[in-house]
């Protein structure tokens, strides 16, 4: 046992050192930076809690937070929901499952930047794919990215991009359910829908909860799709915390305030992860 402890310590040390240097040290530096008015390089003045006071009075930060929450909702419902439905459907077919598996998983391997560019070209008013189709069908052009629609339009590729990830998790979980359960239920005359609601979903609840936590916390990291497709616009209508933080830190050289926004994002992320974990406790299932 003593020997085991020594090896545990030995093998964890490099990982601990690396995360310490590249993750925790920058994180604490970031917290320190949030108390300064600084461009991050040559000009730095300690201003105490001024950046935090500014954050709570910042109209744009408030809007960005609400937009991030809204996107989080779409992501949690649609990414996880669609992935679950697709996994159940693919699991129930006898032929072509491999094809669907690859098709649904495919968007995951495309970089967010490429998907962003793709959807920019799809939504473009003047020369975009959707409007070209409409024009060819004899309709007028439609402005797809308006203040009312921009967040939905960003949510579509965001959901599409990650559905495959949750789909694979669900499919693996479903395939682990022993066939005996379904056979026994079939003898009782269970229908397809009942099979899904009473056997499949309850038995993969643990995975479902994990996916929800991942989707909710992952939604705070949404950046590149918004940045490329709408640039947070029109008129900040699709600005999220990630894009606003980037703008403050790297475009405006307001590194101190950017760091404050980053701290705020971490606090929200941790709180949500805590709440989600608290609400959905995992009962370990063994087959």
């Amino acid at each position: 046992m003593k020997g085991d402890k020594f090896y545990i310590f030995l093998f964890l040390t490099p990982a601990f050192l690396i995360s310490g240097i590249f993750l925790y040290y920058p994180f604490f530096e970031n917290i320190k930076l949030s108390f300064y008015k600084t461009d991050g390089f040559f000009n730095s003045t300690f201003i105490g809690f001024d950046n935090y006071i500014r954050l709570f009075n910042d109209e744009i930060a408030r809007g960005s937070t609400l937009n991030s929450f809204e996107l989080m909702l779409y992501v949690a419902i649609f990414q996880v929901g669609i992935a679950l439905v697709l996994a159940i459907m693919v699991n129930s077919i006898k032929r072509g499952a491999a094809f669907y598996r690859i098709t649904f998983f495919f968007p995951i391997v495309i970089s967010g930047a490429a998907i962003g560019l793709l959807f920019t070209l799809i939504y473009n008013y003047r020369n975009g794919l959707l409007n070209e189709i409409l024009i060819n069908l004899g309709f007028e052009r439609v402005l797809w990215l308006t203040e009312q629609s921009s967040l939905y339009m960003v949510a579509i590729p965001t959901v599409w991009n990650y559905v495959g990830f949750y789909f694979v998790i669900f499919l693996t979980a479903i395939q682990k359910i022993p066939q005996d359960y379904y056979d026994a239920a079939a003898l009782e005359g269970i229908t397809g829908f009942q099979k899904m609601m009473k056997i499949t979903i309850p038995l993969i609840l643990g995975d479902l909860k994990t996916c929800l936590v991942l989707a909710i916390t992952g939604a705070l990291k949404i950046f590149e799709l918004v940045y490329i497709i709408t640039k947070g616009g029109p008129a900040r209508s699709s600005e999220v915390l990630g894009t606003y933080m980037y703008q403050k830190a790297f475009v405006d050289s307001a590194m101190g305030y950017g760091a404050t926004l980053a701290v705020f994002m971490v606090v929200i992320g941790l709180t949500l992860a805590f709440i989600t974990n608290k609400f959905i406790k995992n009962d370990k299932l063994t087959y």
């Binding site: 008013y125 003047r126 402005l143 921009s150 709408t230 616009g233 029109p234």
Partner: peptide, 9 residues
């Protein structure tokens, strides 16, 4: 300006 001027770069 273009109709989508608020999202063009």
């Amino acid at each position: 300006f273009p109709a989508d001027a608020a999202t063009l770069d």
